[in-house]
Design a protein around this nucleic acid. Structure first.
Lengths: 223, 223
DNA sequence: GTCCCGATATATCGAAGCGATATATCGGAG
DNA sequence: CTCCGATATATCGCTTCGATATATCGGGAC
């Protein structure tokens, strides 16, 4: 699921890991944080899968081809390190006016294969049923065609409704056996779910409106 | 964190894994579900740590109080199994009206060490800062002394307030660069957080009220 | 009766995420 | 000049999840 987020952000701009994390925290709110312990492995997975590629931080467009093999942990470290330092120094002199220096950044760009993977993940029904996954998908759903977007919203709505029903039915008669804290917790959760549903209803209505507006653009004119 | 939930439920009643899962889902709502893939390993961890012990399934329901020594897991297996089956058959006939049979259940009971671990986990500040952990702690906070309970609520409130502030500050000027879906997502999230906070405020107020109610009889009476 | 199905029940596997930690560099305060 | 905090990448151990395997029991179909 993290892959979806990374690919979505890289669709718009080449980014390195640290910045990627900041954007993720900002875009999805400080709730549902992402740790480096998941981000960097995810980036490696994506790179291995050929969905993203590392480009030179400074000369991004120029020499993106350099087929550096995965950094060897053994062998001639000195040579690799020297070459790396030389490249970094050259890059630094070419980029003096920029607000922040590159340090030892690894800047990633999305590939064609990554574009395809992104759309696949975004439209997949089977994967990611939890709250976090939905928020993520919603944040990128502008890349979905309208009907798929609507389907995403309605699927989510059905899911919440289902949860609500099961909560209510499992509550039959058991309520008095719960302490006040648990009661309050469940009531608050139920309320939140109901608000979520009506929020989704607004989104769905607005979505249908937009769709019908685009279906008959010539008839009534638009504001 | 799952350990806390298991211990909390076992404090009130001996239970087996499957039932434990049902109770968890019911108590915390269908949100924040618990899978068997985490539950059974957690039970094994707790058993290894000596926080819970497996008791005889048939005797557990039939004669819950029987201070029989912990069920020996070693020794003459065949004899044990035969004895088990005999006891289970006897228990079944004694319990015919009950909805479900014992099958091959492993019923767990909390130990003294488990009681201590429970209180430790429940009162720990360092562990479990996420939403799920708070819900869990709240569901069992009746086992906390009033001041600790208040501390839990206020810590949570501060945490939410902090998240809200960071969201707002990171939103300065960036709002127009977000698409409508992300905007709606963030607005909805912010609203939900605000409702959470006022819910907590109500809980905190009620908590203080209860505390001062109990403080008055203390003054004139026992100490 | 028996045969099969669905609910009950325990268990394990691989993948993925998190929090902590290690390491290193850069910019700026003192 | 030196130390500190922000930037930046990476890995480790642990927990959790979802999927899957396996088996038993109760009950309905036939």
């Amino acid at each position: 699921m993290l892959e979806l987020a990374v690919l979505g952000l890289l669709k718009e701009q080449q980014l390195h890991g640290y910045e990627l994390k900041k954007r993720l925290t900002e875009a999805l709110g400080p709730f549902s944080s992402v740790s480096f312990g998941s981000l960097y492995p995810a980036l490696n997975r994506l790179e291995t899968a050929g969905a993203v590629r590392a480009v030179d931080a400074a000369l991004a467009t120029a020499e993106a081809e350099a087929p550096r093999p995965p950094v060897p942990m053994t062998g001639s470290i000195a040579g690799e390190a020297a070459a790396f330092r030389a490249r970094r120094a050259a890059a630094a002199s070419a980029r003096r006016s920029e607000p922040r220096s590159a340090r030892t950044r690894k800047v990633y760009a999305i590939t064609d294969r990554g574009q395809r993977l992104f759309e696949e993940l975004l439209d997949a029904e089977t994967v990611g049923d939890d709250d976090k996954a939905f928020n993520l998908k919603l944040a990128f759903c502008r890349f979905l065609p309208p009907d798929r977007r609507l389907r995403l919203l309605e699927r989510r709505r059905a899911q919440l409704e289902d949860r609500l029903d099961r909560t209510r039915s499992s509550l039959r008669g058991r309520r008095d056996r719960m302490d006040t804290y648990t009661q309050s917790l469940i009531d608050h959760g139920t309320e939140a779910a109901e608000r979520d549903i009506s929020w989704l209803d607004r989104l769905i209505a607005s979505e249908r409106q937009t769709k019908s507006d685009q279906a008959i653009p010539d008839l009534g004119g638009q504001q």
